[in-house]
Design a protein around this nucleic acid. Structure first.
Lengths: 203, 203
DNA sequence: GTCCATCTTGTACGTTTGTACAAGACGGAG
DNA sequence: CTCCGTCTTGTACAAACGTACAAGATGGAC
């Protein structure tokens, strides 16, 4: 359920005192790569344990960097997580631009959209992260702009093809279909989705 | 973003040693009421901070009970949280039964459904909890049965009225509409929802 | 070369966590 | 009444946490 603590043993031990001292020979300098690696690691950890259980140490371990690297580049945990979320948001926006182009260029926009949704869902990990984030916005208003990026971007993508009202309905449908696939672990039923979209579009 | 630690001060202090000793005069015994109070408190805390940040101490404080009460009735944190989730699941199933009766009895089933959705969303806190839980199932397979209760229950409610295929589409639509309302904080657009449902139902 | 800002790393510190448990209060069985 | 299992509570403890920071390494400016 949560997966904390457990009655096993760990044993870190180790002491030392007074003040620390860098020892091991440092890896080559590359601040930008480290920032990126940390932001990417945040998303991995979020996908696994959720935002609420994401910690400096887990992110550092995932990035293969020492703990100190996290606080050097991101003063607080909030900053660290925010960096990950920013990265997710940028990836999402890029995707939406790509989707818009593909739908606009397609002979059958509905079929194209269904294919895009299917390919989006192929990377379940990423979808999980984005929906985790999406839902977190229900609790934390600071995350709303990101949630709105998704809803608005998708709506604007569809409006030229089906009009305002139908676009809203289709966006909701897609959200529901994606969440259900994530939550139940089931695959997407492409033909059924296409049918539903066409009905909402009024043909 | 996450809201942990902060640089404020607390100061628990206090010591004592060897082993504790019960002091204050205990409240009247009522094990069942305590279990219930704890399970209810879990849901409050989950609504506020998410499953990932739900702790024994926060639950105990919310329930107005001492820390020891949580571990006395629920050996581990997982058990404690599971008790809350079980309670949420039972409430959900009761609601679904109620919905089914109301939709079946209505002159206009679609209008009845829209009204039910609106009233469901009136308690945002509850909706937040259930969707938090719902999405957590994407990460933790143990929660899937609960998520499936929602999807299957809603689908079975609709099938008699609109058939299998349309029911699936409508359930997805409702999920999407609810999530978007939660996430953006916007109110539900009842008439638009009714229109979309009718289109998916094929009239 | 020397210098210094920047980066890398290990470790320290105080807090919060999950969980364990001893001490006392209660209330029905005998 | 006495006894005993159940409940209640305060507290203890090790692990994990967020954050701070001293010590070394690096590489460009001069």
């Amino acid at each position: 359920m949560t997966g904390r603590h457990r009655r096993d043993d760990g044993g870190t031990g180790r002491a030392g005192n007074g003040a620390g001292g860098g020892r091991r020979s440092p890896r080559p300098r590359d601040p930008q790569a480290r920032r990126d690696a940390l932001a990417a690691a945040v998303l991995d950890v979020v996908a696994e344990v959720g935002i609420g259980r994401t910690t400096h140490r887990a992110v550092a371990a995932r990035a293969g960097l020492p703990l100190g690297a996290t606080t050097y580049y991101f003063p607080t945990l909030d900053d660290l997580i925010a960096a990950g979320l920013r990265r997710a948001s940028e990836a999402l926006q890029a995707d939406l631009r790509d989707w818009a182009a593909q739908v606009a260029a397609a002979d059958d926009p509905v079929a194209a959209l269904v294919r895009l949704v299917e390919s989006y869902l192929a990377d379940r990990n990423r979808a999980r992260i984005e929906y985790e984030l999406y839902l977190a916005a229900a609790r934390d208003a600071r995350l709303r702009p990101l949630a709105e990026t998704w809803v608005r971007g998708l709506r604007e993508l569809l409006e030229p093809h089906v009009g305002d009202v139908a676009a809203r309905g289709i966006v909701a449908l897609l959200d529901g279909v994606l969440i259900q696939a994530l939550v139940t672990g089931a695959d997407l039923d492409g033909p059924a989705l296409a049918t539903a979209i066409r009905r909402l579009a009024g043909r």
